[in-house]
Design a protein around this nucleic acid. Structure first.
Length: 533
RNA sequence: CGGGGUGUAGCGCAGUUGGCAGCGCACCGCGUUUGGGACGCGGGGGUCGGCGGUUCAAGUCCGCCCACCCCGACCA
């Protein structure tokens, strides 16, 4: 593993089969070094305090969450085997455990999309450079972070191809061919894919150069329908976040400076991480007729008049996994929300002799029907003590642990332990006969408790400062909910001064008006300011 | 690009005045263990970042190069 710096991983070993390609990569890195400042490199940081400590003991404990949040996060992602660093700067490998989690997110979102009439499709990875240039704001927004293919098959390409940073343009191009009549609308598509954005500063799950997501794209006959769909998808994201991931979110509108490049309006769901920083966890954009004009997406309406279509796009990425980690995790490791966890229940059988083993495994066989409705993993690894397994699965965030040993079998019961409640308080003896109901109740309880805990935390760290001096204080360790004039200049000054930016203008407004927290000008809306990921 | 720092086993490190390249963890094998992070014995694993120099002898001294990390103008 080469999570930490070390020349070994950058230098092709003489035994490495892919020596030649490694050489080529190295030459490639020389090419982009001119434009990529060297102060931002991969992996993102060297761990300040190694989890082992000076004793040289086994890697047992994580860095404490309160002590060093960033390092706690990095170590946890690696050690829980959600992901690992890839050999290319800024890229990550999502490992089976992480991908299983993503698949559960996908399933929960996909069914919600389909329930509203959306169907899935796939558009290509490579997009002609000229497409990006069709929409002025769009190209200005994305130009700095494009990966561009200039050579194919050994020949210099006549027109460079960009690796999609998002697919509005190529979808717009196709739609101009497909959409002719009001009968073709609305057109509701989604695709699950990955996109590439050449990021300077990267962090596992939260910001990598390639990331997985879904991008939904819809076209409508009028602006109201487009706005309605934009808001509908935002609501779906909020519902998903709260009812599947137990992550409380604020729905709101992005400021001018924070909105999507090329959008009329952007909305987001914003979540508070365990260090009080904000994370944009999903976005929904009303693109107006901007892309329809750029790509000539027009249809004939009922009156035989040619009209531009109105489009939307909306996305949620593997970044959300980062949110789950940072919202729920604790010093012991991950705490995965029960409805998304790859394993909802992990079984740790306890036995000394072969006879005991047969006894315990036989009892588990008889419980198979009870357990079938949950995602259950039985940890049969030899040579590890139960204590080790308890800690291991706690680190990996499994919501419920089922312990079963000879004493339990004799009493026709198992011990259930809930991940969100440490120690004896979290343990409960449950009779065989009531196992399924007991587990279901515990999973539901955990979901509710996680959501409540996160909501309380957010509440405790969301402040309503009465003047700018106090504002500067509170954004050091929380969110500020304040009147804001809405001017970009004012927003920029605040950001430069405090590093806090507008996260959103919440849709739920108290009403009334006030004075801008910074400039004192009249303000009609309250905004959330926070330091963000 | 500027300032500061680091390169020795998969990871974390030690290596004295230059003298057989080591330790802990991880990994493999055997045995004893197993209800909250077990232990013993045995084993595999190195271009000491690279190239050149000084020397009988370089991980160690000298020169050049390379890579990476931290701090200062992007973002799902």
């Amino acid at each position: 593993m080469w999570a930490r710096p070390g020349a070994a991983r950058c230098r092709p070993s003489s035994r490495t089969p892919g020596r030649t390609s490694a050489r080529r990569m190295r030459a490639g890195s020389r090419w982009f070094r001119r434009s990529i400042p060297p102060w931002r490199r991969w992996p993102p940081r060297k761990p300040k305090a190694h989890p082992i400590g000076e004793s040289g003991m086994a890697e047992e404990r994580l860095p404490s969450r309160s002590d060093n949040f960033a390092e706690w996060y990095n170590q946890l992602v690696l050690r829980s085997e959600l992901a690992d660093y890839a050999p290319v700067r800024g890229c990550m490998v999502i490992r089976p455990y992480g991908w299983a989690l993503w698949e559960n997110l996908q399933a929960a979102l996909d069914s919600r999309f389909k329930a509203t009439g959306v169907t899935n499709a796939a558009f290509p990875l490579l997009i002609p450079m000229s497409f990006l240039e069709r929409e002025k704001q769009h190209v200005e927004g994305f130009a700095p972070e494009l990966a561009v293919v200039t050579i194919g098959g050994g020949e210099k390409l006549e027109e460079p191809l960009v690796v999609r940073p998002t697919s509005e343009t190529i979808i717009g191009h196709m739609w101009s061919k497909w959409i002719k009549s009001y009968r073709d609308l609305p057109l509701l598509l989604n695709q699950w894919n990955s996109v590439v954005r050449w990021e300077m500063r990267t962090k596992l799950f939260l910001r990598t150069m390639e990331f997985y997501w879904q991008e939904g794209h819809t076209a409508h006959a009028g602006p109201d329908e487009a706005e309605g769909r934009t808001r509908q998808m935002l609501d779906i994201y909020a519902d998903f976040a709260e009812n599947e991931a137990a992550v409380p979110v604020v729905r709101g509108q992005k400021s001018e400076s924070e909105k999507f490049a090329g959008a009329l309006r952007s909305y987001s769901i914003e979540a508070m991480m365990g260090d009080t920083r904000a994370l944009q966890a999903g976005t929904s954009h009303n693109l107006g007729d901007n892309f329809a004009r750029a790509f000539d997406i027009r249809y004939l309406d009922k009156e035989n008049q040619l009209q531009y279509a109105w489009t939307t796009s909306w996305g949620l990425s593997t970044r959300f996994i980062g949110a789950i980690i940072m919202v729920h995790g604790d010093d012991q490791g991950l705490i995965l929300p029960p409805r998304l966890a790859p394993h909802q229940v992990v079984v740790v059988p306890i036995h000394k002799s072969d006879d005991e083993r047969a006894l315990v495994m036989g009892a588990l066989d008889r419980l198979a029907d009870e357990l079938r409705r949950f995602r259950v993993h039985v940890d049969t690894r030899d040579g590890l003590t139960p204590g080790f397994k308890f800690n291991d699965w706690e680190m990996r965030g499994v919501p419920v642990r089922l312990e079963i040993g000879p004493k339990d079998v004799a009493r026709e019961q198992v011990m259930l332990a809930r991940r969100d409640t440490p120690g004896k308080q979290g343990k409960l003896a449950v009779p065989f006969a009531a196992l399924a109901d007991g587990i279901q109740a515990m999973l539901d309880d955990i979901h509710t408790a996680l959501f409540q805990r996160a909501t309380d935390f957010r509440q405790a760290h969301t402040h309503t400062p009465s003047d700018y001096a106090e504002f500067r204080q509170v954004v050091e360790d929380g969110w500020a909910d304040v009147w804001w004039c809405g001017r970009s200049a004012c927003e920029t000054e605040i950001k430069e001064d405090t590093r806090a930016s507008t996260r959103c203008i919440p849709l739920d407004q108290p009403g009334g008006t006030g004075r801008c927290i910074h400039c004192g000008e009249p303000a009609e809306k309250r905004a959330l300011f926070a330091r963000a990921y």
